[in-house]
Write a protein that binds this DNA or RNA. Structure first.
Lengths: 209, 209
DNA sequence: AAAAATTAGTTAATTAAATCACAAAATAGT
DNA sequence: ACTATTTTGTGATTTAATTAACTAATTTTT
């Protein structure tokens, strides 16, 4: 029987991982589902069910004791593809791009940004230890087996996306404020500050269930 | 009978608004639910249902014609609280903070960032037309009726959050990589780049329903 | 002006997700 | 070793969300 992880569960995994990393730093070895609830706000029973998807055969949790923080991080990292060390490229090295790049250097969590591209010739060279190429050289310098691109540009968006897909990119983290279309099989994960604020405003001002 | 907007619907409103703004810029006057599907990937029937929550009495859509882009934006803006023009403050004017600030200047969509704070005295002054104060002056210079703060710092997070809540902040957009706790009634909306990438990787590599 | 073609709105059915309730497992105390 | 306590894991249930099926309104065409 093939286990299928639900969308909702999938979306919670990164939340757990973040919380667990924090706990690991604080030296915590075991964690209860009730403690994870306190930190994440996700119901403990939901957490327990989610975590059962992590291990194929044996379970990570021990009744009366909780989960091993270390093992849980391991399991989550595996399913989240962190261990794959996927090469990632960053398109656009403005303020936002730089912020992402900087963060990536500090915490080696998902894959690794192996190259950046910008339309400004002056930015060519290196930044936070990562090579910055001109966008015209994208095809020439594209890293082998790279499937993920972070898009932090504001111009020529669709054109850039098309070029990336031609190069085999399968996932795009989108910081753009522009709509673009992708081909079948290519995933887009939008990250939108304004949308986040709007959601927040809505939460504060309206009734929801 | 009081209409209660479901969580899921609420989360989609900003998506619609973004798509509609784009359409408005392109000069589109009417839009079909099927067209919104093409752009957002959200099922047309789901879209139609969602949009019924917008208007109390009359409906925005016309059979055979579609929805008025203008009216829809109006309705969404209203329910999303965009019209409230909420004052927002930004804590942390590094690369990320600057990126947010810059974007906010360009597209006047949610409220307005009315002030920034940073721990670096050198940054005091003005940036993209917004005053930058030292974080020590937070209490002294805190804008009246401000309920929303964007957190783009990496140090003294919990301390800063506590101070913000003391000043009456009810919603926090969190770009921090640190866990912090908030009081009852305070909402936090995390925006996490790494989590976004992880979700993406997971989507690409695993089976989901 | 009538007929045909669209397309929004809505009720009903389905599917997905969250929660409850409890059994089984592990620990800690006696 | 036994008992009490804690806490996980899971089948059953409930709740939420989505989709399908249909109705009725509006426009466009003939």
């Amino acid at each position: 029987m093939e286990k299928v992880i639900s969308k909702a569960t999938m979306a919670r995994f990164p939340v757990y991982l973040k919380a667990l990393r924090q706990m690991q730093v604080e030296g915590k070895e075991n964690v209860l589902s009730s403690e994870l609830y306190e930190v994440t706000g996700i119901q403990d029973t939901t957490i327990r069910r989610d975590l059962t998807y992590l291990s194929k055969d044996e379970n990570f949790g021990k009744p009366g004791k909780g989960y091993s923080v270390k093992h849980l991080i391991g399991g989550l990292s595996e399913v989240l593809g962190v261990g794959l060390d996927s090469p990632i490229i960053l398109i656009g090295v403005g303020n936002l791009g730089s912020a992402i790049l900087k963060y990536n250097r500090w915490q080696y969590t998902v894959g690794k940004i192996v190259g950046c591209y910008d339309q400004d010739r002056n930015k060519e060279g290196e930044r936070f230890g990562v090579k910055v190429h001109h966008i015209d050289d994208l095809e020439k310098t594209f890293p082998k087996d790279c499937e993920i691109a972070i898009l932090a540009i504001s111009e020529n968006v669709q054109e850039t996306v098309d070029r990336l897909m031609d190069l085999g990119v399968k996932g795009i983290v989108d910081f753009t404020h522009t709509h673009f279309t992708v081909r079948e099989g290519v995933e887009v994960k939008p990250v939108d500050v304004v949308a986040a604020i709007q959601e927040l405003v809505l939460k504060i001002h309206t009734n929801t269930n």
